[in-house]
Design a protein around this nucleic acid. Structure first.
Lengths: 188, 188
DNA sequence: GGTCAAGTGGAATCGAGATTCCGATTCAGG
DNA sequence: CCTGAATCGGAATCTCGATTCCACTTGACC
């Protein structure tokens, strides 16, 4: 259906990689406002080439956002292996934030996650949610976080931390924000 | 220098008020993306009329943001009169958030406060900061919030709450966010 | 009720970017 | 080496809003 089973021509494959690398770099640095012409130039190709691979700018951004979002799942899975229940939760939040830190476009993407749509996004979200749920419940069972903390709160808290990261001028201020939030999670 | 001391002609004054009302309504509803033509139409005037009062869209937005920002100062001053030191801080945060709730453009403006410039913005910020400082220090003196809470944290915390308000779908979720943050402020 | 500076409406202009087009190139297979 | 489908490049086109312009009104003052 959707698939050209045939692999890309060698030069096209090479160009695709350069385009992705340039897009990652420029969106990370300038946010979603980075321009298609600039990305093409940075990759050393014409805009036409870029549009041959991605029908719209949105498709390109989405591909990159998805890529990173899936890393969130991996991070969560890794943190689930941490023995200390509270540490597992705190570390997951910190590592999720850290993986967002260098990418301005991704920060905004996480804030506006609802605006994104890709094949299987629901599964991706559900998978992440499942792990987060387990981590939260484990910490609750150990009586290390308030019993009323819900999975839905996770997105909310990360939204706050990400906003600090994105909008406030001082770099690393978000770590302070995360600390305050973590303090608020202790059982009352 | 800058001032036409002469008052506006009666019809112009009337139109100015309608323009401001329409701009408040549309920016509040659609955010800063609300279009100049729409605002003019909503006010029942031509775009030219609108541009006669405000040289650019930015000037119009800034005027409205400033207006609301100054209310922040009033709110803070009112909250300073609350006897209970903790309640004063908590109520101020809640009321600041509430005054932001209905206005999408203002939410974004607070998030990007650094992008705004108006005559005396520094004074406005300093005045607000002074009150917030006093409220925080009073709560600390009463040993009701952690001793290391700083004025700079106030903007950060409000940034998080405002981001939740602006980006998350569920209305009023920000109240939950604020509760978590307030919980984190208790002395450890 | 006459004058004119202030005010008005809204079509036309501009600028910034995304997206399209198509003649010129370049790989892959034989 | 030949051929054709896949790729390229990048100028030209399109779109969408903000902003400008100016012939036409209107309120204020005599």
């Amino acid at each position: 259906m959707t698939t050209d089973i045939r692999p890309l021509r060698a030069d096209a494959q090479r160009n695709l990689e350069r385009i992705l690398a340039s897009a990652r770099a420029l969106f990370a640095e300038r946010g979603p406002a980075a321009q298609m012409e600039d990305i093409a130039a940075h990759a050393g190709v014409g805009v036409g080439t870029l549009y041959r691979r991605f029908p719209t700018k949105e498709a390109l951004v989405t591909a990159l956002v998805r890529e990173r979002f899936q890393q969130f799942g991996l991070i969560a899975a890794e943190c689930e292996r941490i023995e200390d229940p509270y540490d597992a939760l705190a570390t997951m939040m910190r590592r999720h934030a850290e993986s967002t830190e260098g990418d301005v476009a991704f920060q905004l993407a996480m804030l506006k996650l609802n605006d994104f749509h890709w094949e299987g996004i629901e599964q991706d979200k559900a998978a992440l949610n499942a792990v987060v749920s387990r981590i939260i419940e484990r910490a609750q069972a150990a009586d290390q976080v308030r019993a009323d903390l819900a999975v839905e709160d996770y997105g909310m808290m990360m939204c706050g931390v990400t906003a600090t990261m994105h909008f406030m001028s001082e770099r690393h201020e978000w770590r302070r924000h995360l600390d305050l939030i973590l303090a608020g999670l202790k059982p009352s």
